[in-house]
Computed example of a mutant assay.
Amino acid sequence: MLEKLRKLANILYWAATAVLIALPIAALGYLLAETPNPNRASALFPHIDIIASPTGLAFWSAFSAGALSFLLFIGFLWSLRGLFDFYRKGQILTLHAAGAILRLGKWLIALALVRFMTLPTQTLLLTSNNPDGHRQLAISISDHEVGFLLAAGLLTLIGWAMNEAVRISDENKAFV
Rank of each mutant, 00 (worst) to 15 (best):
M1N: 05
L5Q: 12
L5G: 08
I11R: 15
L12E: 12
Y13S: 07
W14C: 03
T17P: 01
A18R: 02
V19Q: 03
V19G: 03
I21T: 12
I21R: 05
I21G: 06
A22G: 12
G29W: 02
A33M: 10
N37P: 02
N37I: 05
S42C: 06
S42A: 15
A43G: 08
F45P: 00
F45E: 02
H47G: 13
A52R: 11
S53T: 05
P54Q: 08
T55W: 13
G56Q: 12
G56P: 09
L57S: 14
A58E: 11
A58N: 11
S61R: 08
A62M: 01
A62D: 01
A67N: 04
F70A: 05
L71A: 14
L71N: 03
F73E: 03
S79C: 11
R81T: 00
G82Q: 04
F86A: 03
K89L: 15
I92R: 09
L93V: 13
L95C: 04
A98E: 03
I101S: 03
I101V: 15
R103K: 14
G105N: 05
G105P: 06
L111H: 13
A112T: 10
L113S: 07
F116Q: 10
T118M: 04
L119I: 10
P120Q: 05
L125I: 04
L125T: 04
S128G: 13
S128Y: 09
P131Q: 02
P131S: 01
D132T: 15
H134Q: 14
Q136T: 13
L137A: 09
A138D: 10
A138V: 15
I139Q: 07
I141K: 04
I141G: 02
E145I: 14
E145Q: 15
V146K: 00
V146M: 02
V146D: 01
F148W: 15
L150K: 03
G153Q: 06
L154C: 12
L154D: 06
T156W: 14
L157Q: 08
L157R: 11
G159E: 05
W160L: 09
A161R: 09
N163M: 13
E164K: 11
R167S: 12
I168D: 10
D170A: 14
E171D: 14
K173I: 12
F175D: 08
F175G: 00
